[in-house]
Design a protein around this nucleic acid. Structure first.
Lengths: 155, 155
DNA sequence: TTCCATCTTGACGTTAACGTAAGGCTGACT
DNA sequence: AGTCAGCCTTACGTTAACGTCAAGATGGAA
């Protein structure tokens, strides 16, 4: 037992993370190549810490919301530099705020899209309810919100 | 006056749409190539109707929320087939609902991301308020909403 | 008529984000 | 000792979404 196994979950192999997050070793190495991750090494093998794992969570979430790896890296670097000089922190703060604005814009896009899809669903259901109600029977439908709750408060 | 100019805004040249939506002619032709748009022609030239313009709005929004063109096309085709057979409509309905679920997942991702960024902002601002309050003066800050109860400090 | 801007259709180039195959190290079994 | 799984690096291939010429049609202004 070469290493601390009392808390075996404090370190992860590349395979473990890949299984957990449904991605491939190639992807993780690629992120490393691009400067988004920097796992420790045990010989040649990569050893991912909890911090690395947390970064990976951020990376994958960033990807899901449509950010490019370069943008995600920049955000992660801002996090890293949070304890730098005051001027650096001020710069970081500005960029964070810009990011937030952009994100909220995307959220509105998503709300629009959802509203439109729900609208289409509503029309389709109304149509089918008249013509072929039998086809509606096995649908796992939660009724689309009574229309009032589109996107009430902008956080 | 070759065409109806009493409502000049009912038809658009490729350039007009590009200016309005900040994209390039190449992009619009590309979308056409991929089956997302099908503008009319006047000779060789493309003439975009209001319906085409509406489709473009959907396309661009889809892009912003991270959908691939192929996915957007599928959604647009579902809209188109809404008036097809009942069975087709039922299929469309199912797919719409799946889309909605996926979209709501993305919305949660975005909410997470925003929350994290705001948390980082909060910490940075607190830090700067103590060390260099002068650097905070010119920031266009709306204070990040009081949130639920301050910020529960689990990373 | 000539010229220019704006449109068109190819066709090849580019970037991002990996996939995939080739060849090699290394520790654990058998 | 062999071999096998799992990791490594290197390097070329692939897909999406366009960008970027090149070469030609066209309609209006000088």
């Amino acid at each position: 037992m070469p290493f601390d196994l009392r808390r075996p979950e404090r370190a992860f192999s590349i395979r473990q993370l890949c299984l957990e997050f449904k991605c491939t070793p190639r992807a993780l190495r690629f992120y490393e190549d691009k400067g988004l991750l920097a796992p420790a090494r045990q010989g040649l093998n990569r050893v991912y810490s909890y911090k690395d794992r947390a970064r990976l969570v951020l990376i994958l979430r960033g990807k899901r919301v449509g950010l490019a790896l370069a943008e995600i890296r920049e955000i992660l670097q801002l996090y890293d530099k949070t304890d730098g000089s005051a001027v650096q922190s001020a710069t970081a703060l500005r960029k964070f705020k810009a990011r937030i604005v952009a994100m909220e814009q995307r959220r509105e896009d998503i709300d629009h899209a959802i509203a439109e899809l729900q609208d289409a669903c509503g029309r389709l259901e109304a149509m089918l309810a008249k013509s072929r109600p039998d086809l509606l029977s096995d649908m796992a439908d939660f009724v689309p919100q009574p229309r009032a709750a589109a996107s009430p408060r902008h956080v």
